[in-house]
């Protein structure tokens, strides 16, 4: 564990808490993409099945349980409890265009052709693109509430911090995992446009307006 990975996990934790608070406090999931949340739940389910097979540390286990529990809690809030506020008209990104290539890539490009390893690889590739429906929805609605942009900033920062973690681990432990690194870079690059708008607008108190 290093400071970058811990900061990344905390940023990820913060993002999920911000999202849950937003939905719970405003009793609305307006502006949030349910499809992205479904993809995140699938990502964590596929990646954290090893919860039952191998023990890394208490921290690792607690965080995995938390990420799985909160991702399903978010889906429950969006698709059941506050279903009336779910904006399905703007949440229209074709997720099959993500799932199919990610599945094929996981079967072809992995470290080891085993069930658990292919699931892990699938989850790494899926996480890289899981935010696309959300970013698509923000561009379609042309704007996002500031709480939603703080959620996106924390979520985008998490994998950016992981990139520093991988650089750190490469130089200190000579550890690197190209699949995680490449997917992590792709994932972070997808946020660049949003990061720019976040720093130039949201942090100046303006609303996040995207040129629709």
């Amino acid at each position: 564990m290093n400071v970058f990975r811990l900061a990344g996990d905390m940023s990820h934790l913060l993002a999920i808490i911000i999202l849950l608070l937003k939905i719970w406090k405003t009793r609305s999931c307006a502006g949030i993409s349910g499809r992205s949340q479904l993809l995140f739940a699938l990502t964590y389910t596929a990646r954290y099945l090893d919860l039952v097979t191998n023990w890394v540390s208490l921290y690792n286990t607690v965080m995995k349980v938390f990420f799985i529990a909160t991702s399903y809690a978010t889906i429950y809030l969006m698709y059941l409890k506050f279903k009336a506020t779910y904006d399905s008209n703007h949440d229209t990104f074709r997720v099959e265009f993500l799932l199919l290539p990610v599945t094929i890539l996981a079967l072809v490009l992995n470290h080891e052709f085993s069930f658990m390893e292919i699931l892990w690889t699938f989850s790494i590739y899926l996480e890289a693109v899981a935010i696309l429906p959300q970013l698509f929805m923000v561009s379609k609605t042309g704007e996002a509430e500031s709480i939603t942009s703080h959620y996106l900033f924390a979520l985008g920062s998490y994998r950016l911090l992981y990139i520093f973690n991988w650089i750190w681990r490469y130089y200190t432990e000579e550890y690197y995992d190209l699949i995680a690194i490449i997917a992590g870079v792709v994932q972070t690059v997808l946020y660049c446009d949003f990061f720019y708008l976040y720093f130039t607008k949201v942090l100046k108190g303006k609303k996040l307006q995207l040129p629709a």
Partner: peptide
């Protein structure tokens, strides 16, 4: 042989 339990990250 790749040690598939090497995934110690979240």
């Amino acid at each position: 042989e790749f040690d598939s339990w090497a995934h110690d990250e979240l």
